[in-house]
Simulated assay, not measured.
Amino acid sequence: MASILNPEIPAGAYDEFLPGALPAARAQHAWTPADGPLPALYISHGAPPLFDDGPWLRELFGWAQSLPKPKSVLIVSAHWEAAPPALSASAAHTPLVYDFGGFHRRYYTMRYDTPDASALARRVAAMMPDREPVHQHRSRGLDHGAWVPLMAMYPLADIPVLQLSLPSHDPDLLLRLGARLAPLREEGVLVIGSGFMTHGLPFVTPEMIHKGVVPAWSSEFDAWAADALARGDVGELAAYRTRAPGMPYAHPTVDHYIPLFITLGAGGRADQPVTTVIEGYMIGFSKRSFQTPA
């Protein structure tokens, strides 16, 4: 049976998506200072199956189209944990990181050749405290937590993109790091935390894959997070290990949840309610994605 996990044509939905998306992407209004600061985003990013999910591709693209086209993108992904904070290679056309396994060979040949991001790298490095200099890699490209959703949002690949590592699991430290990055929003930089609102990979069942069953540990965690986000209750969100229902099944590792603290910090005021833009489930995982007030 054809599905996003076993498509008849790998990335066929992406092939169908592009002809309609590219003209709209070319016509998108480019950010100017008159637009004011951009919001910060938290994206549930998917993996190669996103390229086989037409509705999800269009949701992400529509979200990007609802905003001015950023001058550049700074993204923190669940898939690169390194301390102290490090930056990906800023050179144009740096090869991607294909950090996934077991998929059709086509997904390992996909390209996202973004322009030089050295100006953004210098800006971000200058924002870090002197006692915590940021390491700038010469060869590490974007991992799939960055390039997969961005290929849907900005398919022209004409925006400089830089990835910042996830340096800690401490919500307070990540909020502070996000707050340090907040001024970038006033310069037309889109700051993104990329994870997945629930990500219980070890607990995926055939029913979740083939019948669309959403387990209670996923739906209950999602409802808890949605309520806290809507109230701007960052203290509740930070206490997820003991307060959130569905733990630890919803997040046996926390790397896909905690990028939201970068987003909340970068939004300017972490206690402000956010706007959910995408919700629903993929193989039982919550796709909840949101933006902070601009």
Rank of each mutant, 00 (worst) to 15 (best):
P245M: 01
V191C: 11
H135V: 06
L22D: 11
V213D: 15
G232Q: 07
M110K: 05
G54K: 09
L173A: 15
W31V: 00
D172L: 08
G145A: 03
W147R: 03
S219L: 06
T275F: 02
E187Y: 05
D170E: 15
F196V: 01
P19V: 00
L164I: 12
P55M: 05
P155S: 02
I258C: 11
P39A: 03
A47T: 07
D227K: 11
R106H: 13
V124F: 13
R243K: 10
F103R: 03
P68Y: 03
H93Q: 13
G267W: 05
A13F: 03
G235H: 10
A266S: 12
F17I: 04
L164T: 07
G20T: 04
P259R: 00
G268H: 02
P129W: 06
I283G: 06
K69C: 12
E81A: 07
M127T: 01
L175E: 13
D130H: 01
Y240M: 08
P10S: 08
A125T: 02
Q291E: 15
D255W: 02
S168F: 08
A25W: 05
H144S: 07
A226M: 10
E8R: 10
A270P: 14
L142T: 03
V161N: 15
A30T: 08
G46H: 09
G280R: 06
G280F: 06
M1W: 06
P160Q: 03
W31A: 04
M197S: 14
E16L: 11
P95N: 02
A92P: 10
Y112S: 08
K71P: 07
A121H: 05
P68I: 00
